[in-house]
Protein backbone atom coordinates (compact mmCIF):
# COMPACT_ATOMS: atom_id res chain seq x y z
CA UNK A 1 0.00 0.00 0.00
CA UNK A 2 1.89 3.02 1.17
CA UNK A 3 5.33 1.72 2.02
CA UNK A 4 6.11 0.95 -1.59
CA UNK A 5 8.96 2.27 -3.66
CA UNK A 6 8.00 4.07 -6.89
CA UNK A 7 6.17 1.81 -9.31
CA UNK A 8 8.40 2.65 -12.24
CA UNK A 9 11.60 0.69 -12.55
CA UNK A 10 14.69 2.58 -13.53
CA UNK A 11 17.20 1.65 -16.22
CA UNK A 12 19.82 -0.85 -15.11
CA UNK A 13 22.20 1.35 -13.13
CA UNK A 14 25.92 1.39 -13.76
CA UNK A 15 26.70 0.67 -10.11
CA UNK A 16 25.39 -2.32 -8.13
CA UNK A 17 22.32 -1.46 -6.09
CA UNK A 18 22.20 -1.95 -2.34
CA UNK A 19 19.02 -2.25 -0.30
CA UNK A 20 18.85 -2.41 3.49
CA UNK A 21 15.75 -3.94 5.09
CA UNK A 22 14.60 -4.06 8.67
CA UNK A 23 12.54 -6.70 10.46
CA UNK A 24 12.18 -7.12 14.26
CA UNK A 25 15.45 -5.74 15.59
CA UNK A 26 17.14 -2.92 17.45
CA UNK A 27 18.54 -1.20 14.36
CA UNK A 28 22.11 -1.71 15.54
CA UNK A 29 23.28 -3.89 12.64
CA UNK A 30 22.19 -1.45 9.93
CA UNK A 31 23.57 1.35 12.07
CA UNK A 32 26.92 -0.44 11.75
CA UNK A 33 26.89 0.64 8.11
CA UNK A 34 26.52 4.29 9.14
CA UNK A 35 29.20 3.72 11.76
CA UNK A 36 31.70 3.16 8.94
CA UNK A 37 32.45 6.88 9.15
CA UNK A 38 35.70 6.65 7.23
CA UNK A 39 34.32 4.44 4.48
CA UNK A 40 30.72 5.64 4.12
CA UNK A 41 31.22 8.20 1.38
CA UNK A 42 33.39 5.90 -0.73
CA UNK A 43 30.86 3.11 -0.21
CA UNK A 44 28.21 5.44 -1.53
CA UNK A 45 30.40 6.01 -4.59
CA UNK A 46 30.86 2.30 -5.22
CA UNK A 47 27.24 1.31 -4.62
CA UNK A 48 23.93 2.81 -5.56
CA UNK A 49 22.08 2.89 -2.24
CA UNK A 50 18.58 2.18 -3.51
CA UNK A 51 16.74 1.57 -0.24
CA UNK A 52 18.03 2.50 3.18
CA UNK A 53 15.14 4.00 5.07
CA UNK A 54 17.15 5.18 8.03
CA UNK A 55 19.63 7.10 5.93
CA UNK A 56 17.78 8.25 2.86
CA UNK A 57 14.38 9.39 1.68
CA UNK A 58 15.24 8.39 -1.86
CA UNK A 59 13.73 4.99 -2.65
CA UNK A 60 14.55 3.22 -5.89
CA UNK A 61 12.48 0.34 -7.22
CA UNK A 62 13.94 -3.16 -7.40
CA UNK A 63 15.45 -5.47 -8.33
CA UNK A 64 18.42 -5.06 -6.04
CA UNK A 65 21.87 -6.53 -6.54
CA UNK A 66 22.53 -6.87 -2.82
CA UNK A 67 19.99 -6.85 -0.02
CA UNK A 68 21.15 -6.64 3.59
CA UNK A 69 18.44 -7.91 5.91
CA UNK A 70 18.36 -7.06 9.60
CA UNK A 71 15.92 -8.51 12.11
CA UNK A 72 13.79 -11.59 12.63
CA UNK A 73 10.38 -12.57 11.33
CA UNK A 74 7.82 -12.18 14.12
CA UNK A 75 4.59 -11.03 12.48
CA UNK A 76 2.41 -12.54 9.73
CA UNK A 77 2.98 -9.44 7.60
CA UNK A 78 6.75 -9.78 7.84
CA UNK A 79 6.57 -13.44 6.81
CA UNK A 80 5.00 -12.19 3.56
CA UNK A 81 7.34 -9.24 3.15
CA UNK A 82 10.53 -11.32 3.26
CA UNK A 83 9.27 -13.38 0.32
CA UNK A 84 8.89 -10.22 -1.75
CA UNK A 85 12.30 -8.96 -0.75
CA UNK A 86 13.89 -12.28 -1.70
CA UNK A 87 12.19 -12.18 -5.08
CA UNK A 88 13.53 -8.68 -5.67
CA UNK A 89 17.12 -9.44 -4.58
CA UNK A 90 19.93 -11.03 -6.57
CA UNK A 91 21.96 -11.65 -3.41
CA UNK A 92 20.53 -11.61 0.07
CA UNK A 93 22.77 -11.37 3.12
CA UNK A 94 21.39 -11.47 6.65
CA UNK A 95 23.11 -9.22 9.16
CA UNK A 96 23.14 -10.02 12.86
CA UNK A 97 21.77 -12.41 15.45
CA UNK A 98 18.11 -11.49 14.88
CA UNK A 99 18.24 -12.23 11.16
CA UNK A 100 20.42 -15.34 11.48
CA UNK A 101 19.03 -16.89 14.68
CA UNK A 102 15.87 -15.06 15.72
CA UNK A 103 17.57 -12.74 18.20
CA UNK A 104 16.81 -12.11 21.85
CA UNK A 105 13.12 -11.85 20.99
CA UNK A 106 13.23 -15.58 20.13
CA UNK A 107 13.07 -16.19 23.88
CA UNK A 108 9.32 -16.07 23.27
CA UNK A 109 9.75 -19.44 21.51
CA UNK A 110 10.33 -20.97 24.95
CA UNK A 111 7.32 -19.28 26.56
CA UNK A 112 3.64 -18.69 25.96
CA UNK A 113 3.44 -15.63 23.73
CA UNK A 114 0.06 -14.68 25.19
CA UNK A 115 1.68 -14.36 28.62
CA UNK A 116 4.35 -12.16 27.06
CA UNK A 117 1.73 -9.96 25.43
CA UNK A 118 -0.27 -9.58 28.62
CA UNK A 119 2.85 -8.64 30.55
CA UNK A 120 3.47 -5.66 28.31
CA UNK A 121 0.15 -4.59 26.84
CA UNK A 122 -3.20 -3.97 28.54
CA UNK A 123 -5.15 -4.79 25.39
CA UNK A 124 -3.23 -7.58 23.67
CA UNK A 125 -5.84 -7.81 20.91
CA UNK A 126 -4.44 -4.66 19.31
CA UNK A 127 -1.09 -6.32 18.76
CA UNK A 128 -0.32 -8.50 15.76
CA UNK A 129 2.44 -10.99 16.48
CA UNK A 130 3.52 -14.57 15.83
CA UNK A 131 4.26 -17.09 18.57
CA UNK A 132 7.82 -17.40 17.31
CA UNK A 133 10.66 -15.18 16.20
CA UNK A 134 12.44 -16.92 13.35
CA UNK A 135 15.58 -16.29 11.33
CA UNK A 136 15.30 -15.19 7.71
CA UNK A 137 16.68 -18.57 6.56
CA UNK A 138 13.54 -20.25 7.94
CA UNK A 139 11.59 -18.40 5.25
CA UNK A 140 13.76 -17.83 2.19
CA UNK A 141 17.09 -18.81 0.66
CA UNK A 142 19.93 -16.79 2.15
CA UNK A 143 23.22 -16.26 0.29
CA UNK A 144 25.33 -15.41 3.32
CA UNK A 145 24.79 -14.99 7.05
CA UNK A 146 26.77 -12.47 9.02
CA UNK A 147 26.79 -13.20 12.75
CA UNK A 148 26.86 -11.04 15.82
CA UNK A 149 24.77 -8.99 18.20
CA UNK A 150 25.74 -6.57 16.78
CA UNK A 151 27.69 -7.48 13.64
CA UNK A 152 31.30 -6.42 13.40
CA UNK A 153 31.99 -3.38 11.25
CA UNK A 154 35.08 -4.94 9.65
CA UNK A 155 33.16 -8.09 8.74
CA UNK A 156 30.37 -6.02 7.19
CA UNK A 157 32.88 -4.16 5.02
CA UNK A 158 34.43 -7.50 4.04
CA UNK A 159 31.05 -8.87 2.94
CA UNK A 160 30.28 -5.78 0.87
CA UNK A 161 33.80 -5.73 -0.62
CA UNK A 162 33.58 -9.41 -1.48
CA UNK A 163 30.25 -8.81 -3.13
CA UNK A 164 31.66 -5.95 -5.20
CA UNK A 165 34.60 -8.16 -6.23
CA UNK A 166 32.27 -11.11 -6.93
CA UNK A 167 34.07 -13.41 -4.52
CA UNK A 168 33.10 -15.34 -1.41
CA UNK A 169 33.56 -13.34 1.84
CA UNK A 170 36.57 -14.35 3.92
CA UNK A 171 34.88 -14.80 7.27
CA UNK A 172 36.27 -17.35 9.73
CA UNK A 173 33.82 -19.85 11.16
CA UNK A 174 36.24 -20.82 13.95
CA UNK A 175 35.72 -19.99 17.62
CA UNK A 176 36.38 -16.85 19.64
CA UNK A 177 39.31 -18.76 21.20
CA UNK A 178 41.29 -18.39 17.98
CA UNK A 179 40.88 -14.60 18.14
CA UNK A 180 41.78 -14.55 21.82
CA UNK A 181 45.01 -16.42 21.16
CA UNK A 182 45.88 -14.16 18.26
CA UNK A 183 45.29 -11.14 20.47
CA UNK A 184 47.62 -12.54 23.12
CA UNK A 185 44.97 -12.61 25.85
CA UNK A 186 45.40 -14.71 28.94
CA UNK A 187 42.61 -17.34 28.90
CA UNK A 188 39.97 -16.05 31.33
CA UNK A 189 38.45 -19.52 31.64
CA UNK A 190 41.63 -21.44 32.44
CA UNK A 191 43.67 -18.76 34.24
CA UNK A 192 40.92 -16.84 36.06
CA UNK A 193 38.18 -19.46 36.34
CA UNK A 194 35.73 -17.10 34.62
CA UNK A 195 32.91 -18.90 32.78
CA UNK A 196 33.37 -18.19 29.04
CA UNK A 197 31.51 -19.30 25.92
CA UNK A 198 34.52 -18.49 23.73
CA UNK A 199 35.29 -22.16 22.86
CA UNK A 200 31.85 -22.67 21.25
CA UNK A 201 31.14 -19.16 19.96
CA UNK A 202 31.59 -17.96 16.39
CA UNK A 203 34.54 -15.61 15.88
CA UNK A 204 34.08 -12.07 14.64
CA UNK A 205 34.14 -9.73 17.64
CA UNK A 206 37.92 -9.90 18.02
CA UNK A 207 37.60 -11.59 21.44
CA UNK A 208 36.18 -8.43 22.91
CA UNK A 209 34.87 -9.66 26.27
CA UNK A 210 37.99 -11.61 27.30
CA UNK A 211 40.02 -8.52 26.41
CA UNK A 212 37.94 -6.68 29.03
CA UNK A 213 38.45 -9.43 31.65
CA UNK A 214 34.99 -10.79 31.00
CA UNK A 215 33.89 -14.22 29.81
CA UNK A 216 32.38 -14.39 26.30
CA UNK A 217 28.58 -14.47 26.48
CA UNK A 218 28.04 -15.86 23.02
CA UNK A 219 26.57 -12.88 21.16
CA UNK A 220 27.94 -14.15 17.83
CA UNK A 221 26.13 -17.48 18.25
CA UNK A 222 27.53 -21.00 17.80
CA UNK A 223 30.70 -21.63 15.78
CA UNK A 224 30.72 -24.23 13.01
CA UNK A 225 31.23 -27.35 15.15
CA UNK A 226 30.67 -26.38 18.79
CA UNK A 227 31.37 -28.94 21.49
CA UNK A 228 28.87 -27.55 23.97
CA UNK A 229 28.76 -30.79 25.98
CA UNK A 230 32.42 -30.52 26.83
CA UNK A 231 32.17 -26.82 27.64
CA UNK A 232 29.14 -27.34 29.89
CA UNK A 233 31.16 -29.95 31.82
CA UNK A 234 33.86 -27.33 32.34
CA UNK A 235 31.35 -24.64 33.33
CA UNK A 236 30.02 -27.00 36.03
CA UNK A 237 33.57 -27.52 37.29
CA UNK A 238 33.65 -23.74 37.70
CA UNK A 239 30.52 -24.08 39.86
CA UNK A 240 28.21 -22.44 37.38
CA UNK A 241 24.66 -23.50 38.22
CA UNK A 242 22.44 -25.23 35.68
CA UNK A 243 20.09 -22.27 35.63
CA UNK A 244 22.97 -19.91 34.87
CA UNK A 245 24.18 -22.24 32.13
CA UNK A 246 20.69 -22.24 30.65
CA UNK A 247 20.55 -18.47 30.78
CA UNK A 248 23.88 -17.87 29.11
CA UNK A 249 23.04 -20.13 26.16
CA UNK A 250 19.50 -18.80 25.99
CA UNK A 251 20.03 -15.11 25.43
CA UNK A 252 20.89 -13.42 22.14
CA UNK A 253 21.11 -16.57 20.01
CA UNK A 254 18.70 -18.76 21.97
CA UNK A 255 17.08 -20.25 18.88
CA UNK A 256 20.33 -21.20 17.12
CA UNK A 257 20.11 -25.02 17.32
CA UNK A 258 23.44 -25.66 19.08
CA UNK A 259 22.68 -23.07 21.77
CA UNK A 260 19.00 -23.94 21.99
CA UNK A 261 19.83 -27.56 22.79
CA UNK A 262 22.72 -26.68 25.12
CA UNK A 263 20.47 -24.49 27.23
CA UNK A 264 17.80 -27.06 27.90
CA UNK A 265 14.27 -25.93 28.59
CA UNK A 266 14.01 -23.02 31.01
Amino acid sequence: MTTSPPATSTQAPPRPTLAVWKFASCDGCQLTLLDCEDELLSLADALDIAVFAEASSAVVAGPYDLSLVEGSVSTPEDAERIQQIRAASRRLVTIGACATAGGVQALRDFADVDDFLAAVYATPDYISTLATSTPISAHVRVDFELRGCPIDRGQLLEVISAFLARRRPTISSASVCTECKRRGNVCVLVAHGTPCLGPVTHAGCGALCPSYNRGCYGCFGPMESPNTTSLIRQLRVLRMSDVDIDRVFHTFNAAAPAFRDAGGQP
Partner: peptide
Amino acid sequence: PPRFFEALLRGRAFTEPPDITSR
Protein backbone atom coordinates in the same frame (compact mmCIF):
# COMPACT_ATOMS: atom_id res chain seq x y z
CA PRO B 1 6.95 -5.52 15.80
CA PRO B 2 6.85 -5.81 19.60
CA ARG B 3 9.80 -7.65 21.13
CA PHE B 4 8.48 -8.08 24.68
CA PHE B 5 11.56 -7.13 26.63
CA GLU B 6 9.69 -6.59 29.86
CA ALA B 7 8.30 -10.11 29.61
CA LEU B 8 11.52 -11.85 28.66
CA LEU B 9 13.38 -10.21 31.54
CA ARG B 10 11.24 -12.10 34.04
CA GLY B 11 13.15 -15.02 35.48
CA ARG B 12 16.52 -13.64 34.42
CA ALA B 13 19.35 -12.78 36.82
CA PHE B 14 19.72 -9.28 38.28
CA THR B 15 23.08 -9.04 36.53
CA GLU B 16 21.55 -9.39 33.06
CA PRO B 17 19.40 -6.29 32.33
CA PRO B 18 22.32 -4.08 31.23
CA ASP B 19 23.21 -6.54 28.45
CA ILE B 20 19.66 -7.58 27.59
CA THR B 21 18.03 -4.14 27.54
CA SER B 22 20.85 -2.59 25.52
CA ARG B 23 19.44 -4.73 22.69
